[in-house]
Write a protein that binds this DNA or RNA. Sequence first.
DNA 1: ACAAAAAACCACTAGAAACCACTTTTTCCC
DNA 2: GGGAAAAAGTGGTTTCTAGTGGTTTTTTGT
Lengths: 152, 152
Amino acid sequence: MSNFLGSHAINMDAKGRLAIPTKLREELAQLCGGRIVLTASANTDEERCVLLYPEPEWEILRPKIEALPNIKKPVRRLQRLMLGNAAPMELDSAGRILVPPTLRSYAYLEKKLMLIGQGNKWELWSEERWMAWLDESSDDDDVPPEMEALSL
Amino acid sequence: MSNFLGSHAINMDAKGRLAIPTKLREELAQLCGGRIVLTASANTDEERCVLLYPEPEWEILRPKIEALPNIKKPVRRLQRLMLGNAAPMELDSAGRILVPPTLRSYAYLEKKLMLIGQGNKWELWSEERWMAWLDESSDDDDVPPEMEALSL
DNA sequence: ACAAAAAACCACTAGAAACCACTTTTTCCC
DNA sequence: GGGAAAAAGTGGTTTCTAGTGGTTTTTTGT
């Protein structure tokens, strides 16, 4: 399936639209006919960003999220964020997408953005916040065993 | 059936009316002829919001709530909140609904509201409270294993 | 220098929000 | 209890902003 790598610096226009890089445009065209889903990431506040899934990937994930038993608060948070912000859309004739206002403000998106490939999806960050997170995130020593086992 | 996604920022007017976004209006029109039911959510106090069901969804849910054996207090609470606040209504000619005063005050609704898609229903929040809940709910580490297992 | 892509720009449209006028209901006082 | 005043509800119109589509200019890479 999809295997997105690398990153792009992109500008958002005054109306909240951003032009998908042409390479990625073509990839998305043949992968899902240009149909994608934007939604909010449900990680910590420092990691607020917009997630961009090709539609088929989203349709794998969505039922799993909906099926979670939601007695526990973190589950309701995940559902409210990821379902409550999901926005299916297609690229316009110029290969652009309009990011919904709620997502724009959630992820603090202004003009300068970073699009980060994450295998099955892309992450869309405020460039400023992305830079800040890179600096700040290095000092965490709570490493799960799966990661310890990795030989990079 | 219905699968509501995404969210909208909406303003309530001075008389407690809010205009349903046109996209959703059309969806509701063909789904249930514009007949919906508003009621109160029965979660924690921090999550007080108004629930908006298309009538058919509500009619699936209502008998289940009514049939619950109500010796235990939480059940009576659920029944009193959800049955006792249920308000069937139709959109007016301009696609607006009048939120009953009791629901307005229950969910602290003032002017700025958020409408959050949750699959079979919508949640209507005070914008201020919605923001606060997002911030406050992130630092809860009581994550059930089903959620831990998710790869987003 | 040329071609392609990204960014900025501009004109147009549709939707939301504010506004206003009118009706009905409730409340309070005589 | 009746009437006046206030509040709440209803319907419609106007204004303005955000969304949409397209074009031009600038930048980048070859």
